[in-house]
């Protein structure tokens, strides 16, 4: 019995260690993403961005974090206290739990589950609760309006995202993330499914409430949307959660369309670079496009956003699912059903 307990303990310890190995670089990545955003947008607008704290402003995120930590946490008088406190935690936790199934390299994954892509989809669809709870519990008009906008927006774009994922799954024949990446050994899905890649990317912008779909935050009309009433660490948790979600969505785009940890070509100087490095480079590229979009595009009007989601993306991705299925069946290219799990 004690031997059994010891193996359990060792396994548990190893698991906790793995979790930390993933989460700590992720949080540092989040910190530097905020810096990168300010610097990149700064350069795009011909200014310098934060470059004073540390060399090239590299210590800026830590200065920001310390500032936020030293601020007072304010509970608004009319707020629903428990929900108000839980909301930022929920957002943050949901942004982190999804990383359990992300494969960083060949069999480099914490939990290689059969339904990995569904798990990711489920976790990303839960993100809306943090926002709704925050908006409702704040007991403020602006926060509530922001939360309502966000909820409607995320639910709408999830539909087309689901259809895009189905298209990819048709070409793979498995819900496992490692299988999805392996299936892209010959060609990344971004090429044959190019329109879907674009739709997926735009949907992730809407799903993470980023520009040009950042209506929930719309600072010019809603002051800052659902987190107006938050301050100090609870605000920081929202901020971290939002940026961690951006990284997660980039990772999802990378896995579904850019071949995950596979090198672009399986030739000599490229394939000696280890998989995780390729994975991170691709995520960085997608993140750069996220920032680029923010610096380039003006904010959508709300009815235009809904029109794009329901009247353009949904029918188009539905047609594309049918076309892909028809193509795969008529050319007998459906992925083999035997052998895979």
């Amino acid at each position: 019995m004690s031997g059994l307990d010891l193996t359990y303990l060792i396994e548990l310890g190893w698991l906790v260690l793995q979790v930390f190995i993933v989460i700590i670089p992720l949080l540092i990545g989040v910190a530097y993403l905020t810096l990168a955003e300010r610097r990149v947008i700064g350069f795009m607008q011909l200014r310098k961005g934060p470059n004073v704290v540390g060399p090239f402003g590299l210590l800026q995120p830590f200065a920001d974090a310390l500032k936020l930590l030293s601020k007072e946490t304010i509970l608004p008088a009319g707020a629903d206290k428990v929900t108000f406190v839980i909301a930022p935690m929920l957002t943050f936790v949901l942004a982190l739990v999804a990383w359990a199934v992300i494969p960083f390299g060949e069999s480099l994954v914490i939990a290689d589950i059969n339904v990995g892509i569904l798990y990711l989809f489920a976790v990303s669809s839960l993100g809306v609760y943090g926002i709704i709870m925050a908006g409702w519990a704040s007991n403020s008009k602006y926060a509530f309006l922001g939360a309502l906008r966000s909820a409607a927006q995320m639910v709408s774009y999830e539909v087309s995202m689901g259809l895009v994922i189905i298209t990819v799954l048709l070409c793979v024949g498995s819900l496992n993330l490692s299988d999805i990446i392996e299936a892209q050994r010959t060609v990344w899905f971004a090429l044959p499914l190019f329109p879907m890649f674009i739709i997926f990317f735009i949907s992730t912008l809407a799903e993470t409430n980023r520009a040009p779909f950042d209506l929930p935050e719309g600072e010019s009309e809603l002051v800052a949307g659902y987190f107006v009433e938050y301050s100090s660490m609870s605000f920081a948790l929202f901020f971290l959660g939002e940026y961690a979600n951006m990284i997660l969505m980039s990772a999802m785009t990378t896995i579904l369309f850019l071949g995950g940890w596979l090198p672009p070509f399986d030739i000599y100087p490229l394939n000696i670079i280890p998989g995780p490095i390729w994975f991170i480079l691709k995520i960085c590229f997608v993140l750069f496009v996220f920032l680029w979009m923010r610096a380039t595009t003006p904010r959508y009007r709300y009815d235009q956003l809904m029109r794009l989601g329901w009247k353009v993306f949904l029918p188009f991705s539905l047609i594309w699912v049918v076309l892909t299925a028809g193509f795969l069946i008529s050319f007998d290219m459906l992925p083999a059903t035997a052998g895979l799990n």
């Binding site: 059969n114 339904v115 569904l118 669809s125 709704i132 409702w136 509530f144 309502l148």
Partner: peptide, 26 residues
């Protein structure tokens, strides 16, 4: 039954309950 579990979360928690919450809050 991991597929059913994920479906429960995606469909009920991710979509149906959001609409519930929407209506109740409004």
């Amino acid at each position: 039954a991991e597929f059913l579990a994920m479906l429960l979360v995606v469909v009920y928690v991710g979509a149906v309950a959001v609409l519930f919450l929407f209506v109740v809050m409004m």
